[in-house]
Amino acid sequence: MAVNLSYREYFKEDALPLMWCAGCGNGILLRAITDSLADLEIPPHQVVVSTGIGCWGKADDYMTTHAFHGSHGRALAFGTGIKLGNPDLHVIALMGDGDALAIGGNHFIHAARRNIDITAIISNNFTYGMTGGQYSPTTPLSSKTTTSPIGVAEPAFDVCGLAEECGANYVARSTVYHVTQLKRLITAAIKKKGFNVVEAINTCPTHFGRRNVPGDTVEMMNYIKEMTVAKSRYEKMDDEEKAKYLVTGELVNKERPDFLSVYREINPAASESGRGEGK
C-alpha cells in the first residue's frame, strides 16, 4: 500500500526562511528533490546528501536526511567513501557548477568512469554564486562576470555530454522552470543504480542575471526557459540551430554494472565481508 509521503518528511520546515536570494532557483530544486524522495518512499535515515561548498552546497541545511557537508569540490569523493562504507545508503551529491566541474572536475569524471552508485544533482547557474559571480566552466561564451567584465573567452562545458563520455549510467537535463520534468528526472536518477547525473539549469539573478539578463528575477527565469529545448524538438533541428540551445530530457539511460558489483565479482571476499547489497 502506498504510504503517501510528503516532501515535508525530508524538508526542515523549521529552518525557514531559506538563505538564498529572491529569485534564486535553489529552493525550487530542493523542493523537486524532496518531492522525489517522498515519491520513492525512501526513509530519510537511508539517505545521505553529500554537499560541497557554494550557495547550492547549503541545501543540506534544509534536509532531514543524513548530510555530509564537506569541502569545495569533494562531494563525490566523500560520497564515494560513504557509499563503499555502507552500500545500503542512498548517496546523493549536491553540487554547483563550480563545485562539480571546476575544482571537483576530476572527481566528477572518475566517478562517472567508475560508475559508482551515486546520484549527482548539479545546480548549473553558470557562475560561482557564493563568492560573488566569477565565471565557471559552464559560463556561456561571451557572458559577463566579475572575472570577465568584457565577456568570457572560453567555451562552456556541456555537462551532460561530459558525463556521458566519461561513462555515467544515466544523464538528464532540466531547469528550475520545468518543475514537473525536473522531478521526474530526479526520481528516475535516484531510483537507478550507478552514477546518475541530473543537471538542473538554475537562476542566479544576483550575479549572472545582473550582468547578462536585463530585467528582474522573472527575466532571469525566462532566460533559462528560452535557452533550453525539449529533446523531441531538439532532434528535429539542424546543427546550426542546435548550437543555440541546451537540450532537456533524459539523454542517457544505460545498464552498465556499477562499481561495487564489478568489485565484488573481481574480489569475492569483499562480498562476504560487505555490509549489504545496496539498492
Binding site: F11, E13, L16, P17, L18, W20, G23, C24, G25, N26, G27, I28, R31, A32, D35, V176, Y177, V179, T180, K183
Partner: peptide
C-alpha cells in the same frame, strides 16, 4: 499546483 512547485521559498 505549479505555483507551489515553482516558489523558491516554500
Amino acid at each position: 499546483r505549479l505555483c507551489e512547485l515553482r516558489c523558491p521559498d516554500f
